[in-house]
Simulated assay, not measured.
Amino acid sequence: MKKSLLLSCSLLLLLSCQNQAQNNKTNNNTMETHAAISAETIYQFKVKDLYGKEFDFASLKGKKILIVNTASECGLTPQYKDLEAIYKKYKDLNFVIVGFPANNFGAQEPGSNEQIAKFCEMNYGVTFPMMSKVSVKGNDMDDVYKFLTQKSKNGLQDSEVEWNFQKYLINEQGELVKVLSPRVLPTDTAIVGWINGK
Results as ranks from 00 to 15, higher is better:
residue 59 S to A: 10
residue 45 F to A: 07
residue 92 D to W: 03
residue 125 G to K: 11
residue 185 L to G: 04
residue 196 N to F: 09
residue 88 K to P: 01
residue 143 D to V: 13
residue 25 K to V: 11
residue 100 F to V: 03
residue 197 G to K: 12
residue 59 S to N: 13
residue 178 K to F: 05
residue 11 L to E: 09
residue 94 N to Y: 07
residue 58 A to Y: 09
residue 177 V to K: 07
residue 193 G to P: 08
residue 120 C to F: 02
residue 69 N to I: 06
residue 198 K to H: 13
residue 129 P to C: 07
residue 9 C to H: 08
residue 160 E to F: 10
residue 31 M to F: 10
residue 79 Q to L: 09
residue 179 V to D: 00
residue 52 G to A: 08
residue 144 V to Y: 00
residue 52 G to Y: 05
residue 152 S to Q: 15
residue 144 V to T: 04
residue 178 K to E: 08
residue 180 L to R: 02
residue 167 K to D: 00
residue 23 N to W: 01
residue 49 D to F: 08
residue 46 K to D: 12
residue 29 N to V: 09
residue 28 N to M: 12
residue 40 E to I: 05
residue 122 M to T: 14
residue 48 K to Q: 10
residue 105 F to W: 01
residue 124 Y to L: 08
residue 157 Q to D: 10
residue 175 E to P: 05
residue 66 L to C: 09
residue 38 S to I: 12
residue 144 V to S: 00
residue 3 K to S: 12
residue 132 S to I: 07
residue 137 K to N: 07
residue 37 I to K: 14
residue 9 C to D: 10
residue 110 P to T: 00
residue 162 E to I: 10
residue 136 V to E: 00
residue 178 K to W: 07
residue 131 M to R: 03
residue 82 D to V: 11
residue 40 E to Q: 14
residue 112 S to W: 06
residue 133 K to E: 02
residue 100 F to N: 01
residue 117 A to S: 11
residue 180 L to T: 01
residue 11 L to S: 09
residue 77 T to K: 05
residue 94 N to W: 06
residue 141 M to K: 15
residue 121 E to W: 10
residue 9 C to I: 15
residue 110 P to F: 02
residue 94 N to Q: 11
residue 16 S to M: 15
residue 115 Q to W: 04
residue 191 I to M: 03
residue 81 K to E: 13
residue 39 A to R: 14
residue 176 L to K: 01
residue 18 Q to F: 12
residue 34 H to A: 15
residue 32 E to Y: 08
residue 16 S to I: 06
residue 138 G to A: 03
residue 154 N to I: 03
residue 187 T to P: 07
residue 184 V to I: 08
residue 172 E to F: 02
residue 88 K to C: 06
residue 154 N to T: 05
residue 19 N to V: 14
residue 2 K to Q: 12
residue 81 K to Y: 13
residue 134 V to H: 01
residue 113 N to R: 09
residue 146 K to A: 11
residue 189 T to D: 15
residue 41 T to S: 09
residue 89 K to T: 10
residue 88 K to H: 10
residue 30 T to S: 13
residue 80 Y to S: 06
residue 83 L to M: 14
residue 145 Y to M: 09
residue 192 V to K: 00
residue 5 L to I: 15
residue 35 A to S: 14
